[in-house]
């Protein structure tokens, strides 16, 4: 085991998989010699060379479009979109092409592209370096969406993504890229997709989040514990397909739930979680499920601390479920 941050964990996964499987190639803006603006691809260029670690021209549609062509041919491309905010020029390639190739070709053309992209606020990046567009992609049939919250998960989940045969959007919480540190297996350890992690058990209220919001709900759970409220903390890890069983089992136990994400509320991923819980565990609910989310505004610059959900807002929502 070694202590790593999320960037080092992602980097470790890429090193392992590129060494193990020659079909894996990394491509994107600044991913080569420079090792990526966040350094996630650091050292890959020196080890695997310019054929497998490709600095592309600056055009996201071309990055994803050419990655699709590589995958159709049998490679395992791992394109990086420098910020999730910049992914939209590639939206058509992701939605209409990448996610649909297997289906529309009658199963002839699998397209295993793993798109890595840093997302989320809290880095003083303003609107164009802070957004959380996960729900736009979670809505796309044929795509999987995975968001780690810890270094160990980042590595284990990424390795799993690289070893299955369908496209994945792998969103990395850049706010905690370096802040989240933890013990990570230096070897080849995978974490299964589609499985949530019950980070902490509790019986009063279920808190559900993913990515950078995980630390927020953990902090809220700590504060709640000081008041004698024991929260169950669930890290979703995979948004599509999400681990409905773990959620339902928890809500059946607690009877209350708070769903947290930093993306805007309307049609946010939380809406799907709330609906799914209501469909399956309505009779167990003691109170309406609460959502703590970003606002239906563009992502702000100087007021981002007001925009982003924090432990106090989550705690307030927990109390609402208890006092309802």
């Amino acid at each position: 085991m070694a202590t790593m941050n999320i960037i080092q964990a992602v980097n470790s996964a890429l090193h392992i998989e590129m060494a193990r499987e020659s079909k894996v190639v990394v491509l994107g803006e600044d991913v080569g010699k420079f090792g990526g603006v966040f350094r996630a691809t650091s050292g890959l260029y020196d080890q695997f060379g310019p054929d497998r670690v490709i600095d592309t021209p600056l055009a996201e549609g071309g990055i994803i479009g050419s990655a699709i062509g590589m995958a159709l041919y049998g490679m395992r491309p791992v394109p990086e979109i420098q910020f999730a905010d910049f992914i939209f020029p590639a939206f058509d390639q992701i939605v209409n092409e990448l996610a649909k190739f297997r289906y529309r070709s009658g199963g002839q053309y699998p397209c295993p592209v793993v798109i890595r992209t840093p997302y989320g606020g809290g880095i003083r990046g303003g609107h164009y370096h802070s957004q959380s567009p996960e729900s736009m992609f979670a809505h796309v049939a044929g795509l999987q969406v995975v968001i780690p919250s810890t270094p160990a998960d980042a590595k284990g989940l990424l390795l799993s993504c690289l070893r299955q045969n369908d496209p994945v959007l792998f969103m990395e919480p850049k706010r905690i890229y370096r802040a989240a540190r933890g013990e990570v297996d230096e070897g080849d350890t995978t974490i299964p997709l589609g499985k949530a992690n019950v980070v902490r058990e509790g019986e009063h209220c279920t808190l559900i989040a993913y990515g950078a919001m995980l630390s927020v709900i953990e902090e809220a759970a700590n504060k709640a514990a000081e008041q004698g409220i024991r929260c169950e903390v669930i890290d979703l890890r995979t948004l599509v397909p999400f681990d409905v069983e773990t959620l339902i089992a928890s809500v059946k136990k607690t009877g209350r739930a708070v769903v947290v994400h930093e993306a805007p509320r309307t049609c946010g991923y939380g809406a799907e979680l709330v609906a799914s819980i209501c469909e399956r565990a309505m009779e167990y609910l003691e109170a309406p499920i609460q959502r703590v989310t970003g606002f239906d505004t563009p992502f702000p610059y100087v007021l981002e601390h007001e925009y982003l959900p924090n432990a106090d807002r989550v705690l307030g929502a927990v109390r609402e479920t208890l006092e309802w």
């Binding site: 479009g65 190739f101 529309r104």
Partner: peptide, 27 residues
């Protein structure tokens, strides 16, 4: 679509196949 003769599945939005062809060529 006919993968056995390396003919790639057609989509309706025009032009999407062009960068894909480049990616295959690069591969």
């Amino acid at each position: 679509s006919a993968s056995e003769i390396n003919m790639v599945s057609i989509s309706s939005p025009v032009g999407t196949q062009i960068p894909q062809a480049v990616g295959t060529a690069q591969a």
